[in-house]
Simulated scan of single mutants.
Amino acid sequence: MKSVNGEQIYLYLAWVVSLMATLGSLYFSEIAGFIPCELCWYQRILMYPLVLLLGIATFQNDTAVKKFVLPLAVIGWLISLNHYLVQKVPGFAQVKPCVSGVPCTAQYINWFGFITIPFLAFTAFTLIIIFMALLIKRKNR
């Protein structure tokens, strides 16, 4: 039986997070019927490839994938943070109003008064960044 090393665990955890985020976004749009706004689409564009990249890397134990995952996750993290601020901070939404479709200020969910869909994406991107940072740190030891 092959043993699992620390690097593979970080890859696996990052993959599970990306998979859950992707399945969650598909649930919200395809089952719950929530139409994604423009910023939601950008976050999806950055999250969906992570499922494939991290999934393949996990099962091939390819830690080099971090150089592809980190840029996508950091950009997605920044977009998620901006989207969350657009939803929660008055005046932020005026920077770029949506021209068509669902406004980016729409909050389909608002669990506990602060958990919205962009917050969930922000959390997923944060976890993926942390797992990639841990992977880098462990690799450098």
Results as ranks from 00 to 15, higher is better:
49 P>L: 11
80 S>P: 06
99 V>Q: 12
62 D>I: 02
77 W>T: 05
47 M>F: 01
65 V>P: 05
70 L>N: 08
56 I>C: 00
92 F>S: 12
62 D>M: 01
72 L>V: 05
69 V>L: 03
74 V>I: 15
86 V>S: 01
75 I>Q: 00
72 L>T: 03
85 L>Q: 09
90 P>L: 08
80 S>I: 09
97 P>N: 04
79 I>Y: 01
72 L>Q: 07
56 I>W: 13
97 P>W: 09
53 L>V: 12
78 L>E: 03
50 L>D: 07
48 Y>R: 00
81 L>N: 09
91 G>K: 03
95 V>C: 01
96 K>D: 09
87 Q>D: 05
61 N>F: 02
55 G>N: 08
94 Q>E: 14
43 Q>M: 15
55 G>M: 05
70 L>P: 01
95 V>E: 05
57 A>P: 07
94 Q>T: 15
94 Q>H: 06
82 N>G: 06
80 S>A: 15
90 P>F: 02
48 Y>D: 03
70 L>V: 14
68 F>H: 08
49 P>H: 12
86 V>N: 00
54 L>E: 08
89 V>P: 02
67 K>L: 10
58 T>C: 10
49 P>K: 09
71 P>Q: 04
79 I>Q: 03
86 V>A: 08
60 Q>W: 04
101 G>R: 10
96 K>E: 10
63 T>G: 04
77 W>N: 07
47 M>I: 09
80 S>V: 06
63 T>D: 02
71 P>T: 04
66 K>V: 15
55 G>S: 01
100 S>V: 08
63 T>C: 01
79 I>T: 02
53 L>C: 05
69 V>T: 10
94 Q>I: 13
78 L>M: 14
82 N>C: 05
56 I>Q: 08
89 V>A: 13
72 L>P: 01
75 I>P: 00
65 V>K: 01
87 Q>R: 05
71 P>Y: 06
47 M>K: 00
59 F>T: 09
83 H>W: 13
53 L>G: 02
74 V>A: 13
100 S>K: 08
81 L>M: 14
67 K>H: 15
86 V>Q: 03
47 M>C: 03
72 L>S: 02
60 Q>E: 10
100 S>M: 05
55 G>Q: 12
73 A>Q: 04
84 Y>S: 01
46 L>Y: 11
82 N>Q: 11
73 A>P: 10
83 H>C: 10
98 C>K: 02
87 Q>N: 06
95 V>Y: 06
97 P>T: 14
48 Y>C: 00
96 K>V: 15
48 Y>A: 06
62 D>P: 04
45 I>H: 08
61 N>K: 13
90 P>S: 11
77 W>D: 08
56 I>A: 11
45 I>S: 11
87 Q>Y: 00
71 P>G: 09
94 Q>L: 14
48 Y>G: 00
100 S>Y: 08
86 V>I: 14
60 Q>T: 14
76 G>R: 03
89 V>N: 00
66 K>Q: 13
78 L>F: 15
65 V>N: 04
90 P>D: 13
58 T>Y: 02
84 Y>G: 02
73 A>W: 07
50 L>H: 06
70 L>G: 01
87 Q>F: 09
54 L>Y: 11
62 D>C: 01
54 L>C: 11
90 P>N: 06
45 I>W: 13
83 H>S: 14
59 F>S: 08
52 L>D: 00
95 V>W: 12
61 N>S: 14
59 F>C: 07
96 K>M: 12
44 R>Y: 13
54 L>T: 06
72 L>D: 05
97 P>M: 12
98 C>D: 15
